[in-house]
Nucleic acid binder design. Structure first.
Lengths: 156, 156
DNA sequence: ACTTCCTGGATATTAGATATCCAGGATCAT
DNA sequence: ATGATCCTGGATATCTAATATCCAGGAAGT
């Protein structure tokens, strides 16, 4: 699982505390991340409809919809792509008594079992939203929203 | 998720239909896999206690215990290692108002949520055994065990 | 016009997955 | 004992994906 997922998760949470566009340079400085590379991930989030971007001075990125409407799965899928965790390469087709026309990604019992586990993983991630995580954080650290907003203004 | 997992899963299933040692060369030829590299995965399965190996003529690999006592998680963990799917790099420690002494792999709300999803994934994999998959296969393809045994003898 | 800022393509670097080879040791048959 | 079979583990090579940087172009505000 790539590094960009962690960046995207925390960046989305921070943006949920701000309702104005924040430029890449500020978001990168917040966690000391490489700006150009973080920007690639932000672009992926825009393509996925999770963020919107604004050009020009005072532009930047902001959430495209309410935090309660953004699941962790949305963010993970935006960064990692749509592939399943386990990729079936159909080695069964090289085995005995097998036919070329069969799609073993569907019929192979291992592929099915792995897909079941994949779905369980996605179900968990789909059931947790940025709003849920934000509530968890605010419960343990009530000062977090103000701290975050202040630091973003400071880094602007 | 690496290729070796698929090789290991199918190889363990095949071995569950044979109760004699099968050498790497035969197991590799079965699915046209690179023998030397497959051998690395088999060694990992031995280290994990899933297979046992026998040296000398008529030696090779066989299951170390009953198929019902080998879960898919056992095999996946043997090949992929013990790491969680999501690796928390604690970028929070670079954020505002944070202390160096905190372990964010434990306290970060995102890390906790990702770990929950990871556990759901593992729970599914731990609940499915090689014996379960074998039963599924034999239901749909009653000829599979005999075919597999015949091909292994043929490739010996 | 000038500055700020996003977009997307090209490119470099690095780490991990994939793959091969070989020297050494264990085991068995003769 | 000798030779053949087969596993073990280390060294090494190759290839791919993740990580990272840079720049030309366009959009938007002042």
């Amino acid at each position: 699982m790539s590094q960009g997922v962690e960046w995207a998760l925390h960046t989305c949470l921070n943006l949920s505390w701000v309702d104005a566009p924040v430029p890449t340079s500020t978001l990168a400085a917040f966690y000391e991340l490489p700006p150009a590379y973080l920007n690639k991930q932000l672009q992926a989030l825009v393509r996925a409809g999770i963020l919107t971007s604004t050009s020009g001075p005072r532009g930047g990125f902001q959430l495209a919809r309410a935090p309660a409407a953004i699941s962790l799965l949305d963010i993970v899928a935006a960064i990692e792509g749509p592939e399943e965790l386990f990729q079936c390469d159909q080695i069964l087709s090289k085995g005995p008594g097998e036919h070329a026309g069969v799609d073993y990604r569907q019929s192979c019992a291992f592929a099915q079992a792995m897909r079941g586990a994949d779905l369980a993983w996605r179900r968990e991630l789909a059931g947790k939203t940025v709003a849920d995580v934000r509530a968890d954080v605010e419960r343990g650290h009530p000062e977090a929203p103000a701290n975050t907003r202040a630091r973003i203004v400071e880094l602007r």
